[in-house]
Every structure is written in structure tokens, then in C-alpha cells.
């Protein structure tokens, strides 16, 4: 049952990314291009996605456990740390450069051509680089 929910959630996420235009890099870069032909579409995507999720968090707060067992995630902790800030700035720079983020990069793998594969491969390498980078950060701090 857990597996089925994961599969269906991933599938619906992928369809939503496709329908919303998040897999189209011109839309994403158009949204970030405030000095050019600004495209507000992504505000509708984010707004549309936050609505059902805000309801879900309220429902989760009144339930003891998820439907198929386990536990709900703990409240966010740690506040805005230097690592969160630096990571978000690095992530945003890459997002602006290519117009792809992790979800859409995978959702578009079947039709994104070699460009999509190259981006996804580099993204996985970047994720692996984060492991030693976190260690260096801990030593420095």
C-alpha cells in the first residue's frame, strides 16, 4: 500500500509538472526574467500547489498517524541556517541558468532529449558533491 501511494503520488506530481508548464524551461526562465518579458504563470502553479497542501497539513495536525502507518514528519527545526541560505542561493543560480529543477528534470526525462539527460546526470553528480561539502561545512563551523 505504501508503495502504491508512492507510485501514484509520483505519477500525479509528474502529470502536474507537465500540465502546469514547469517542464518547459522557457516558462520557468520567463518567470525569473523580471527585466524581460515576465511570465507570471509560475505564481499560479505555486499558488495552486500550496492550496491542497495547506489543507493537508491541517488534516495531518488533527490525525494521530498517516493512513498506512508510520509517523508524520516533525515540525521544521533549525531555522534559516547558513547552509540553508547558501544552498538555496546555489540552487537558485542553477535553476535560473537552465530553467530546470529536480522534479521537472525527472518528469521530462522521457522527452527531454540528450539535454535533459545531461542536466539530470550533472544534477545527480551535484547531489553526491553535497555529501563532502556538508562535511567541510561542519568542520569549518
Amino acid at each position: 500500500m505504501r508503495g502504491l501511494i508512492s507510485l501514484l503520488s509520483g505519477g500525479l506530481f509528474g502529470l502536474g509538472l507537465l500540465v502546469s508548464g514547469m517542464t518547459d524551461t522557457t516558462r520557468v526562465q520567463g518567470w525569473l526574467d523580471i527585466f524581460g518579458a515576465w511570465d507570471p504563470t509560475l505564481a499560479f502553479v505555486l499558488g495552486g500547489a500550496i492550496l491542497p497542501m495547506a489543507v493537508a497539513w491541517r488534516v495531518a495536525a488533527r490525525r494521530a498517524a498517516p493512513l498506512v502507518g508510520g509517523a508524520f514528519p516533525p515540525p521544521p527545526s533549525g531555522g534559516i541556517t547558513p547552509r540553508l541560505a547558501i544552498g538555496s542561493l546555489i540552487f537558485g543560480a542553477g535553476w535560473g541558468l537552465a530553467g530546470l529543477c529536480p522534479g521537472p528534470a525527472f518528469a521530462s526525462l522521457s522527452f527531454g532529449g540528450w539535454e535533459g539527460l545531461a542536466f539530470a546526470a550533472a544534477m545527480l553528480a551535484g547531489m553526491l558533491l553535497a555529501v563532502p561539502a556538508k562535511r567541510i561545512g561542519r568542520v569549518a563551523a
Binding site: 502536474g16 502546469s20 499560479f44 500547489a49
Partner: peptide, 21 residues
């Protein structure tokens, strides 16, 4: 389409939270 796709993304996230935590 952005709003529709966004709602789908939000429902996918809600499903994973309420189903699997």
C-alpha cells in the same frame, strides 16, 4: 494550465503526506 497543474502537484504532495507521512 498553471493553476490546474499546480493543484495536481499539491494533491500529489497531500497524498504522500496523509498516506505515507
Amino acid at each position: 494550465y498553471g493553476l490546474l497543474g499546480g493543484l495536481m502537484i499539491g494533491c500529489a504532495a497531500a497524498m504522500l503526506l496523509l498516506g505515507n507521512g
